[in-house]
Simulated assay, not measured.
Amino acid sequence: MDNENVQRITLGDVEIIRLVEWRGAFMPAGELVPDAPPEVWQRNADWLAPDHWERESDRAAMALQTWVVRSAGRTVVIDPGVGNGRERPGSPFHHWQGDFPGLLAAAGIEPEEVDTVVNTHLHVDHVGWNTKGLAGGWVPTFPNARYLMPAADDHYYGPDNGYAKGLRESDRLIYQDSIAPIHRAGLAVLWDEAYRIDEHLTLEAAPGHTPGSSVLRVRSGGDRAVFVGDLVHSPVQLLAPSCSSCLCLDPAGAATSRRRILERAAELNELVIPAHFGGAGAVEVRSAGGGFALGAWREA
């Protein structure tokens, strides 16, 4: 039986399942989206708080969550969280312990039935449950799945590029426990530009947040959605799409990708599904005065 952390949306013949590990205040709002004026948060406080903004502490509220899509007989896991028991020094995810396996079970999903895992990009909170720890080391959590990873991110964060040119020790740790075991198991599929999963699901490059960051488009009948990953961390970025988060490697490139993706979402009436929204997990957007306005929220 589903619980409050396992929610569902149906779009045409596609079922979307949301698995929420954690919700809460994450970091100061002005740090998360540094170019967004404080008045944008204040002016929209009536709906940003409490799901997207903790007004008293001025901290952005977010969720750690994974999405599962059932489409054309496939079970597709999108961005499987942080993973448990990882070495992440200096990170809030150091030795994280969540209940992702329990959420999968509550949703009626067995790891062996998963056909495809999508990592929209290779940041820590999008790849962790690619693997699980056994006595002999890290092994794929989903042993029968193809793991679709952006080739540009695999190159940037992998040993060929010196783990992002040695910028952070955490990049090496993430790659070694969450990416390299997938390669060793022969389950990694690297892609560039675009990749079609089935008649409903297509991956598309949207660089900027990372070199290979991507979005997943859903189209079934007259229904459409787009999983935008970390192109949008806060609804404030829907109102101010030129403002990238502090977590974007290429803020200008991320802003270009964000505007392109949101313009198409508004034009085609695609439901926008970001990776980390608290509260309702999906929202419609509309073009408005050279920018965007929020339409209806969809609970998921």
Rank of each mutant, 00 (worst) to 15 (best):
D2C: 11
E4K: 13
V6N: 11
V6L: 08
Q7F: 00
G24V: 00
F26Y: 15
G30I: 06
V40M: 07
R43C: 05
N44Y: 00
A45W: 10
L48R: 08
W53P: 09
E54K: 11
L64C: 13
S71C: 05
V76I: 14
V77D: 02
D79H: 08
D79T: 10
P80Y: 07
G83A: 03
G85M: 07
E87D: 15
R88I: 12
D99S: 10
P101H: 05
L103K: 11
L103N: 10
L104N: 02
A107M: 13
I109H: 02
T116H: 06
N119T: 05
T120K: 00
T120D: 04
H121F: 11
V139W: 06
P140Y: 05
P140A: 08
P140Q: 08
R146D: 15
G162S: 07
G162M: 05
L167P: 03
E169A: 14
Q176K: 13
D177A: 04
D177T: 07
S178G: 04
P181W: 01
V189K: 00
L190H: 08
E193K: 09
Y195A: 07
Y195M: 08
L201P: 08
G208A: 02
G212L: 01
R219D: 12
G222T: 14
R224T: 02
F227A: 12
L231K: 04
S244G: 12
L249S: 15
P251D: 09
P251Y: 02
G253D: 05
A255V: 08
R258H: 05
R260I: 02
L268Q: 15
P274D: 05
A280M: 07
V285S: 02
R286F: 12
G289P: 01
